[in-house]
Amino acid sequence: MTAVDDVSFSMVADAPEVLTIIGESGSGKSTLARMILGIHAPSSGRIVFEGEEVSARVARDRHAFMAKVQPIFQNPFESFNPLKKLDRYLFMTAERFGRAGRGNVERVCDEALGAVGLSLAEVRGRFPHELSGGQLQRAAIARALVSRPRLIVADEPVSMVDASLRMSIVNLFSRLKREFGLTIIYITHDLATAYHISDRLIIMRRGQIVETGEARGVLSAPKHPYSQMLKDAVLTPDSAGIFRSSVQSRL
């Protein structure tokens, strides 16, 4: 089975950007994310990070690679073990990735939490169920920031966050890009949030890239028939009554 087929793109080190990969289920976007994270090795072709192939680098020193490339996952309620206190993951990341001496762990974590609009005082000693989905996703982002990564791979990070809080998380990504010079790969099926934050955009279908380019341009006037179909299918508050009228016209 080919999940991702002949996909090529590159991102420049000194120009932080949000690159969005859009696709529906089965488009191969998550497989691509896992390959970039070094969880799976590509069967052919190369993924190069900082001049070295990812699979070779992971084999050589996984730990150092993880410090630079961090993931954010879909379900905030699953990002932390429900039976464990959540600060443990932040402290652990700070200790293990050597950014901080023993005494600095708490300060580093507090800073990272501050960057996402939380504080250590709000998180310390609490279990995941004591926080809301939005707060948990912020905490997950803060944890990823603790190791001072260069690249963040966010796989559907807001699809399970409530609509009223979703945009605040999405906006957070643009802010982190600006303030920390982070490069972010934002994987989603949601064109509207992609429109808001991405600089560049890749639309995938069945493992292949169908359209790519500057985000606003592509989404405002998609060229590929599939991209057009995708855009047309997005239901927004402005789609009021599209099905109602279709019925009435037939009656």
Binding site: I39, H63, M66, Q70, P71, F73, Q74, N75, E78, S79, F80, N81, P82, L83, K84, Y89, M92, T93, E95, R96, F97, A140, R143, A144, S147
Partner: peptide, 26 residues
């Protein structure tokens, strides 16, 4: 397959820590 296992890996935990501290309670 649960996400918190991946998060544990990316928090720098060793295999032994993940098995004993994260999975054992379940």
């Amino acid at each position: 397959a649960r996400e918190f296992t991946q998060v544990s890996i990316y928090s720098g935990m060793t295999t032994r820590e993940i098995l004993v501290r994260e999975h054992l309670p379940y």
